[in-house]
């Protein structure tokens, strides 16, 4: 599950740029500050690499790991 917090996102599009799976797309949806929010349109392609979360300068993105999933991800590096 990918969540983009509309109150924190400033629309820099870095998540769209860095995602290796091209999950994100620019949406036509404006938040209350007049920012076009990124939309995780191809969420099914997400490999939970968390790169978008890491690059997001405004801590607006949360990528939730599957319940069964990759909790050990952090210890691998």
């Amino acid at each position: 599950m990918i969540k983009v917090d509309p109150n924190l996102c400033k629309g820099c599009d870095l998540c769209i740029e860095v995602c290796p799976q091209k999950v994100y797309e620019n949406s036509s949806k404006l938040n209350k500050k007049g920012v076009y929010l990124p939309c995780p349109k191809r969420e099914k392609d997400c490999t939970k690499c968390h790169l978008c979360e890491l690059i997001c300068p405004d801590q607006a993105i949360t990528v939730e790991d599957d319940k069964m999933g990759n909790e050990g991800d952090e210890s691998n590096d």
Binding site: K10, I55, P57, E74
Partner: peptide, 20 residues
């Protein structure tokens, strides 16, 4: 929050990397 940094500023990314 939200922080005072401009859209796309690198500061937030670096802070995330710091926590990681």
């Amino acid at each position: 929050l939200p922080n005072i940094f401009c859209p796309g500023c690198g500061n937030g990314t670096i802070l995330n990397s710091f926590f990681r």
